[in-house]
Computed example of a mutant assay.
Amino acid sequence: MTRLVMFLALFISSLAFAQDEIYTGYFSNKALSGYDTVAYFTDQKPVEGSAKYVTEYKGADWYFASQQHLDMFKAEPEKYAPQYGGYCAWAVSAKNDFASADPKDWAVVDGKLYLNYDDDIKRKWDQDPALHIKQADANWPTLIGKP
């Protein structure tokens, strides 16, 4: 029992202080839960990626629906990767904190991809995306330890 308590304390404390730059969830290394980040730009909708088309970028595995999308991402990952590492853009903005994001709650604004936690949070984001982007851009470097 003592070992379990110690393990949980270490696990929880590591979560509190360290966040990966790319959101992948706790039990996966898939960026965007395996959705194809290029598809938001080319298909204007979330499309699930395939295990046939995978690459590693910033410590996460990125899945794509086609070889063409994989090649596009490899050529310009910063163009297609979601802002704020795929964490909820509203949380980075309004709460100055990390929160998971749902790949189905998204927006492309000025050529950049933003994800949000759920439909309710996405509606908050949609009320003033420019303000949220400005706030999140200011908060993000500090959140990831790169002021």
Rank of each mutant, 00 (worst) to 15 (best):
G111Q: 08
Y40F: 14
Q127K: 15
D119M: 09
K74A: 12
G59Q: 11
D36K: 01
E78S: 14
K124W: 11
D105A: 14
A130P: 03
D137R: 01
A101N: 08
S66Y: 05
S93M: 06
E56I: 12
P82I: 13
W106D: 05
D110F: 04
P129D: 11
Q135P: 00
D102Q: 09
A94C: 03
S33H: 11
P103H: 08
A31G: 09
P82N: 14
G85P: 10
S28C: 05
S93R: 02
S50Y: 01
A107N: 13
S66C: 10
A107I: 09
K52D: 13
A65G: 14
S93C: 06
T24D: 04
L32W: 02
T55W: 07
F64V: 00
F64S: 00
W90R: 08
D97V: 05
A60F: 05
A81G: 13
V47T: 13
N139S: 01
E56W: 04
E56Y: 09
Y63I: 00
I133V: 08
D110T: 02
D137Q: 04
A81R: 12
K52Q: 10
D20H: 08
E76P: 00
V38R: 00
R123K: 15
W125Q: 11
A94D: 09
Y40P: 08
T55M: 07
N96F: 02
G85F: 10
D119G: 13
D102C: 09
G34K: 02
G34V: 00
C88M: 11
H132P: 01
